[in-house]
Design a protein around this nucleic acid. Structure first.
Lengths: 238, 238
DNA sequence: ATCGCAAAGTTGGGGCTCCAGCAGCCTTCG
DNA sequence: CGAAGGCTGCTGGAGCCCCAACTTTGCGAT
């Protein structure tokens, strides 16, 4: 459309069109770098970049020494490839990206697991865990509550350590492999309603999250978010 | 491992490690091209390529004129994550991964946009759109409702086409670049309460999702999920 | 103390070149 | 005649450079 688009996109779009409309059937060879530079009157960089983009989209496949070919069954790998690492305090982090200053307070104390947490962390009910309560605020207003439970042996000791659950576990040689979340909505408890400054009738979103290292639960937390609308934005990686 | 690996991979792996182990927390700046060339003693091409790979993995995000930064991961992203290909049933897809048989019915019809949808899709209120209503069931029980609105010109025509919004848009040369969701909890409407077979007092989770291609909204949908507990599982990338 | 502006730094597009390794194909030699 | 070896074209890695557009920062003037 715009005439001042990157040139490599012109090549990408033309080849993509030819693939989608069948001009280039599955298995058909794509012109080589040298041929593309001649055909589209572009530099080698642009030709190369175009091929890489198409390949990363899964439309074509490159074979060293041979050439690029239209894939038999085009897959949108770029979408599949979208993977994320988890970090603590994710919702606060999201609000941050909306330009709001997010602050948080926490309070840590030893506590007995109790039936619910014992079940989640697969420990005995009488096991003493480190229980940490977080309050997240954006521009002063309360945004989110979280209560985290972790075994004493790798609980954080310093402010630094608290920053990342992953870093801490990593230091103990533990690698988080799975995250399980249960999401539900429910009526806020009085304390929550208070802490989050909720108006009457607003429910809360409750996320129960457990981090697993292999088949062993290493941390579990309850995250409570106000049920009024909040927004999540995320974009596809380039 | 192999000493003769591509140099850019050395950079990628080192930065990836720093992100996963928390040395580089969310939002932290990644060294610039110039700094990477010095730090790792590699050429500019390798540094650049490393950044591109990390960006395409979604681990970092590049801001022109500013730099690359570790990406924040909003928690609710976990609800739909990288299952974008199955549209518009991310949650159903998740349930599928739990071994439950998920079926779905849909009903499509032309409809006027109306004020709300017109605002979301940036069209006139009188524009005629394709409105599709979905009901998802797991093992027979209703799980999720969804209503999707898309411009007539790239609405699906066949059962095949319906499968993936992305594939369909792709065929039109449209690449989804951003997904924006607003999540809220609210009292179910009578029809919803009925369709979802809700017991009294259970609220619903309402996700309003819009897919963007650049600065242009290409599809919007309302997803309604019962507020009783449901579960999301995801595992870390290898 | 604040505003405005210029300089410096950074990304992303594009160009050019060299080289290793692989795949065909063709030629040559046993 | 058939196998070995060489030639050519292709991809993917890597280096270096230039430039436009944008952000950040710091300085100087008001």
């Amino acid at each position: 459309m715009a005439t001042s688009d990157p040139v490599y996109l012109r090549v990408v779009e033309d080849i993509r069109r030819q693939i989608t409309d069948g001009t280039l059937p599955p298995g058909a060879p794509i012109p080589s770098r040298a041929q593309l530079t001649r055909k589209y009157q572009v530099g080698e960089t642009a030709a190369r970049h175009a091929l890489r983009v198409l390949a990363s989209e899964g439309l074509i496949i490159g074979r060293v020494g041979s050439g690029h070919y239209v894939r038999e069954r085009p897959v949108l790998t770029s979408l599949h490839r979208w993977r994320y690492l988890d970090h603590p305090a994710p919702i606060a982090a999201d609000l941050q990206s909306q330009g709001r200053r997010v602050t948080w307070e926490w309070h840590s104390e030893p506590a007995e697991a109790g039936p619910e947490i014992a079940r989640r962390l697969r420990v005995r009910e009488t096991t003493t865990l480190t229980k940490t309560h977080y309050v997240f605020r954006g521009d002063g207003r309360p945004l989110q509550l979280a209560t985290s439970y972790e075994p004493m042996d790798f609980a954080p000791h310093t402010e630094e350590e608290r920053r990342s659950l992953f870093a801490r576990l990593y230091a103990h040689g533990i690698k988080v492999t799975e995250v399980v979340e249960s999401v539900s909505t429910r009526v806020p408890r009085p304390a929550e309603s208070d802490a989050l400054d909720l108006s009457a009738g607003v429910h809360v979103l409750h996320v129960e999250r457990t981090h697993w290292a292999g088949d062993r639960p290493v941390e579990t937390s309850d995250i409570v978010i106000p049920g009024d609308r909040f927004r999540v934005t995320y974009s596809m990686p380039a």
